[in-house]
């Protein structure tokens, strides 16, 4: 590369770097997990998963636990393999919350339904591109806020 080209490329880089509007930094994580229900509990139905940062950044009072960044639905309890993109600038730590859609209505514990269990696990080893977790759905009809911290 000639000196002129080098200078031009550098100048272009400086201009572009100084003119970014939104910069989003994501961190890819391959999650190898297992979703289960306690022995003997009904296990039929899809499982809805929500991936949260464990702690969301914020100044003073604005820092708070949890903050969902991706959701997925898997066919049922059992092994799970999902790739998620973690928002590096939003928080730290990784939490997986899930609930079993026993009646298949897509709503977690609609009025009158009290049997759809939920669970939450803080994934150990974060940050790493490959992580594993084990999630047991045992608490009926609760949101992640009742399970963490």
């Amino acid at each position: 590369m000639s000196r002129a080209r080098f200078v031009f490329a550098g100048a272009l880089g400086v201009v572009l770097a100084g003119c970014v509007n939104e910069e989003t930094r994501l961190y890819e994580i391959e999650l190898d997990g297992k979703v289960a229900v306690p022995d003997g509990a009904p296990s039929a139905g899809a499982v809805h998963l929500a991936f949260h940062v464990a702690k969301t950044f914020g100044e003073g009072d604005l820092e708070h636990p949890l903050g969902v960044f991706e959701t997925r639905t898997v066919a049922g309890v059992g092994p799970v393999r999902e790739t998620v993109l973690y928002p590096l600038d939003e928080g730290e730590g990784l939490v997986v919350y899930g609930w079993l859609d026993s009646d298949g209505d897509g709503v977690h514990c609609a009025p009158g339904q009290t049997e759809e269990p939920a669970g939450l696990v803080k994934v150990a080893g974060f940050p790493a591109h490959a992580l594993s977790f084990s999630l047991t759905l045992r608490a009926p009809c609760v949101g992640p806020e009742s399970l963490y911290p």
Partner: peptide, 9 residues
């Protein structure tokens, strides 16, 4: 505030 309306907790 992120808490269920029906959560007895």
């Amino acid at each position: 505030q992120h808490f269920r309306m029906d959560d007895p907790a």
